[in-house]
Nucleic acid binder design. Structure first.
Lengths: 244, 244
DNA sequence: TAAATAGTGTCTCTAAGACAATATAGA
DNA sequence: TCTATATTGTCTTAGAGACACTATTTA
């Protein structure tokens, strides 16, 4: 953008680039990784499912557009959305990724706790959660975006405290472990997981009041909140470097 | 890009988005991290230094544009460029990041071995290497992009075999260690570094022929090539989690 | 009681950190 | 010789993996 424009370049003369955002919104539901998809009502890919997203408006950054879309698609209240984890993934710009026109899409990954089914605020009329392990082909290049998003999230669980973003404000260590096991597709040893989490300062903080909560019929578990730490040193490496 | 366009949206009616790439090209020179910058000859930021970059052409992907710019700016031959490490960093899209028009820029980081001063093939007339630790403010938001790029590269040295991308085809373990020390800004214990690198299958492979090379006046070191591995399991963590 | 989940303790082993000692070059 | 770099080896310690055992709930 600092180099001279190509000879004779005039931004208005070329077919312009459209810039959009696409969102891979993940949650953990019933021990399965789920992703929020919307059904396309128009060609191309009519009837296929796609990642939610939309145009970046003329005075918006891509990040702002992504947060706006996230609020619209999840139907969450204004004050709940800013606390959700949303991170830029990468940008997809193959010339023919959309047959209608030249569209460059900035992809984002969002992590949310288990939410009710979306009641579309905007375009999300046909939005629902899908088991990320049982998806047919998605519209456009969204299979690739989704795979990249899963890989990124799985990797970040190793060296960040991101897993708490999947949990409600108060959670048990068992629930936190479920997040790791679900995203990584492995089983972890409970005592060792517990030792690691508690040994990392700021990962979680115990909720002092002795209230406890049951997960079914065993012993109630102590509740925790997300701590202030964001990085995990040393990391919590997934067994054998499998990537699902 | 799947949601309906905003009411009355016509791609030609709005001020269009321009899409560019910006490159943070790094090398290690004389034990210092260097970055390739170009001097701006026009307003805005005339006389300031900036990351090399340019427009994404109508039939190009951003990745293709980045590789094209990398070839132009480094002045390398066609066959040398494809082997260089080039990775997408993230996209910068604040509405006012360029005062002239709406420009969305996809940033890339490139790692190259120590190269001669660039003799500009194209727009790179005023291109040169700068010590990344002694930079004045750059044009546009390029300080932010550069900082993000350094952080990413430093982090990736921990869990990938990327460091070899800074080295010539054959290198000594001391040179490889220099890469880590320079990028991280720390000193590492030589025997331990050596043990770790050699214990990671596929990180480096010894060059069998007993040719050796001197770095000054000590004992000559054995030569190695980059191996086939890309990931580092377990990672080579930087001491104390400092981020320079 | 049995079954299920939460939590504690312990042993082992890998690998990283510290650092001594040896090897081979140039000045 | 001395100095500088490369290379090998050893001791210690932090932390992960495996797993036995105890605690507290519901059925």
């Amino acid at each position: 953008m600092n180099a001279a424009a190509p000879q004779g370049y005039d931004p208005h003369a070329f077919e312009p680039f459209a810039v959009t955002v696409d969102l891979a919104v993940f949650t953990v539901r019933e021990s399965r990784l789920h992703v929020l998809l919307v059904e396309r009502g128009e060609e191309p890919y009519k009837g296929h499912w796609a990642l939610p997203g939309g145009f970046v408006l003329p005075r918006e950054s891509a990040g702002t557009a992504a947060r706006r879309e996230l609020a619209e698609e999840t139907g969450l209240t204004e004050d709940a959305v800013p606390s959700l984890h949303l991170e830029q993934l990468r940008t997809y710009s193959e010339p023919d990724r959309d047959p209608r026109m030249r569209v460059v899409s900035v992809a984002y990954a969002a992590l949310v706790p288990d939410l009710p089914e979306p009641r579309g605020g905007g375009d999300a009329a046909g939005a629902r959660w899908w088991d990320a392990g049982r998806l047919g082909p998605l519209a456009f290049d969204h299979d690739v975006i989704l795979a990249d998003a899963r890989a990124r999230i799985g990797a970040k669980l190793e060296y960040t405290c991101l897993a708490t973003a999947f949990c409600p404000p108060e959670f048990t260590l068992g629930e936190l472990q479920q997040v790791y096991e679900t995203v990584w597709g492995v089983e972890l040893d409970r005592p060792n997981f517990r030792r690691k989490v508690l040994a990392t300062p700021g990962f979680v903080q115990a909720v002092e009041g002795p209230p406890r909560r049951t997960g079914g019929r065993g012993k109630p578990a102590a509740l925790h909140r997300a701590g202030a730490a964001t990085a995990l040193h040393p990391p919590l490496l997934r067994p054998e470097g499998r990537s699902t």
